[in-house]
Design a protein around this nucleic acid. Structure first.
Length: 650
DNA sequence: TTAGGGTTAG
């Protein structure tokens, strides 16, 4: 023992090592603090233990204390401390440590030091610095080059990642499982199937084809290349799939439009007692959102709450989006307000939810609040708030925000931003101003002209529509939506000859009008209806319900508005055609299904709700005492007690 | 002692 009663220097170090080995970091720290003098190895052991236990902040504090006490850091210290700085995102501190390394004359060419430094700069996104350090190391090893590859892939520089990988192969450095779990990501993000498949072959040849992380990386690579069936093949040969592998597959399925399969896979995963994390849950929430399956979405929300992941940013954004897209704006707001920290994506999700439900004022307030709080707004923020203004007809606020976007030198308004303004002006009947705004755009796209064409329809401006149509056709001859739009303008004006000319034009161009359909989720099953569609097993009941509703609402003053029938029919035929619009059938079915005694009914339509249906739903919401939420191609309508949230502006 | 695979807004 040391005369002061403390263990001898090397014995003390051994004791600290023993504490660390047992995972007793607190014990190691106490002993460390009590030691009258410490060897460099002791400092290094302690710093290293902190980093390995996820206590990088503590590691940095100890490193700084070491410098203050004039203990010279060595290669070992630097190899570990750079990771601490990158874990904590402390760019400035990391650079200072690099400076100290130079002053102390520690060699960067040491493989461990070089790799640590390259990895730190790569994680900070300072890839030029990472490359400079890497170039100073004469004998580069696989760890250093893999760190560089990962840095490039994580910051979207996938071509450079592939270049480094090709260098690795060319100079004969043996790529290992870490390299093979990183490089397919670059191929996936580039959509480079050829390189992806070559690397897959090389991986198998090198003996890493059975490493789970490598296979996971292949699942992602194939799915990002649009080859989801190949992802499934890799997954089938992965009996040791872990949570990351399952999540990669579930995400891939969602990204490839196979949302139903992704939900089935999720169920399988849970049945294997694998607990989903934030990655998994945000992907399945997206699947529910796309499928408009909100009962499922709510169940996933329960899992989120049970697992305590409701404060995770990615999950929060996915939940806000899911509730926003389901028209449950109250729930979206509850999730939003429960978050501890806000970032631009979360706020954009909330603004966008407001936009879709027509809550323009709330969207503008959040936008203004964001600006006051100093949170940087991006192009999506402006697009979301402008679309909120356009859905709610807030011309004054929209113009103010659009002007500030034009003044803001950091962001250039895109054609999408202009489209919102054209829509706002157009709907307000200021068609000439809308047209002038389009002329300000250097290369106006077809969306802008089509937006103006749509405004012409609302205001019945047939002559202007003819002119705008020629511009639309110059840019996109083969768009069914455009032809239908102009045909509807002619139909509203009673120009039936022109309507049949449009039909002939569409036939010649082999364009088909996409059929209108509505759907509703009942007991986690989706029921879809077309106009006049009486093929549902409960068609007779639906018909009776429609009749009951008609009788009730007619006593309150509902009159079918045949102006919305865009076919050349007689009055009685027109009324009958309105009677069986798909949204009416879906609502009648919803009412008779009495979904879980719910106070509301939610339906979806792939096209815009027509004026007569809009009026019909208002009456039905009154007689049925239900809130009816209808999502059409663009937005939500919340009907309650004979009124609609859109204030008839849509 | 150093490097890896899966997630959010339009």
């Amino acid at each position: 023992m040391h005369k002061s009663g403390f263990p001898h220097l090397s014995l003390g170090n051994k004791l600290i090592q023993a504490y660390i080995k047992c995972g007793d970091i607190e014990g190691a720290r106490n002993l460390f603090d009590e030691m009258p003098q410490r060897h460099i190895v002791t400092w290094n052991s302690m710093i290293s233990a902190y980093v390995r236990h996820g206590l990088s902040g503590e590691a940095i504090r100890l490193f700084e204390r070491m410098c203050l006490e004039s203990v010279f850091a060595d290669e070992f210290t630097f190899s570990i401390v750079f990771k601490a700085f990158s874990d904590m995102g402390r760019v400035y501190g990391g650079r200072k440590a690099h400076g100290l390394l130079v002053v102390l004359g520690v060699e960067v060419s040491n493989a461990f030091v070089g790799s640590g430094l390259v990895d730190m700069y790569a994680k900070f996104g300072r890839l030029r610095d990472a490359r400079l350090v890497s170039d100073c190391v004469v004998e580069k090893d696989v760890v250093l080059l893999t760190a560089l590859i990962v840095g490039y892939t994580q910051h979207g520089e996938n071509c450079k990642a592939l270049e480094v990988f090709r260098d690795v192969v060319a100079v004969g450095i043996k790529a290992n499982d870490f390299t093979f779990s990183s490089i397919p990501i670059a191929c996936g993000d580039l959509g480079d199937r050829r390189s992806g498949m070559q690397i897959h072959g090389l991986m198998v040849k090198s003996g890493y084809g059975d490493v789970v992380a490598c296979k996971t990386s292949l699942v992602t690579m194939y799915s990002k290349c649009g080859l989801i069936d190949d992802s499934l093949k890799v997954f089938e040969r992965c009996p040791d799939a872990n949570l990351v592998t399952w999540t990669a597959l579930i995400t891939g399925l969602v990204q490839n439009g196979r949302e139903e399969s992704s939900l089935l896979m999720f169920k399988q995963m849970v049945s294997k007692s694998l607990n989903p994390n934030a990655f998994t849950l945000s992907s399945v929430l997206r699947a529910c959102s796309v499928l408009t399956m909100y009962e499922q979405g709510q169940q996933i929300h329960c899992i989120v709450l049970k697992t305590g992941l409701h404060r995770e940013r990615y999950v929060g954004a996915a939940l806000i989006d899911m509730y926003g897209k389901s028209g449950s704006i109250g729930m979206a707001r509850i999730v939003f307000e429960s978050l501890d920290k806000c970032d631009v994506v979360l706020i954009n999700s909330m603004i966008n939810s407001y936009a879709q439900s027509g809550y323009g004022q709330e969207a503008v307030e959040l936008f203004d609040h964001m600006r006051k709080s100093g949170i940087e707004q991006n192009a999506v923020t402006f697009l979301s708030v402008l679309s909120a203004c356009s859905n709610a007809g807030l011309l004054e606020e929209g113009s103010r925000i659009f002007s500030s976007l034009q003044r803001d030198s950091k962001l250039d308004p895109s054609t999408d931003h202009y489209a919102c303004m054209v829509d706002l002006l157009g709907r307000a009947g200021r068609l000439k101003e809308a047209e002038n705004l389009i002329k300000q755009v250097e290369e106006p796209d077809v969306v802008l002209w089509r937006t103006l064409l749509s405004a012409c329809r609302i205001h019945g401006k047939v002559e202007m529509a003819r002119r705008v149509m020629t511009r639309v056709l110059e840019l996109d001859k083969k768009n069914d939506g455009t032809h239908v739009l102009l045909s509807n303008i002619y139909a509203s004006a009673g120009e039936w000859n022109e309507v049949s000319n449009m039909k002939i034009a569409m036939k010649n161009l082999k364009l088909k009008k996409s059929p209108g359909m509505s759907w509703i989720e009942v007991d986690r099953e989706v029921h879809t209806f077309m106009a006049g569609d009486l093929s549902h097993p409960r068609a007779t009941e639906i018909n009776e319900e429609l009749k009951r509703l008609r009788e009730k609402i007619e006593t309150l003053g509902y009159v079918p508005d045949v102006r919305f029938v865009l076919q050349d029919l007689n009055e009685e035929q027109k009324k009958r055609s309105l009677y069986y619009h798909s949204e009416k059938i879906a609502i009648a079915f919803g009412l008779l299904s009495n979904i879980r005694n719910s106070t509301f009914i939610r339906i979806f339509k792939n096209l815009r709700v027509c004026g007569d249906c809009h009026n019909w739903i208002k009456f039905v919401s009154k007689v049925s005492q239900r809130e009816i939420i209808a999502r059409d191609a663009k937005r939500f309508h919340h009907f309650r007690d004979g009124m609609c949230s859109c204030g008839d502006h849509w």
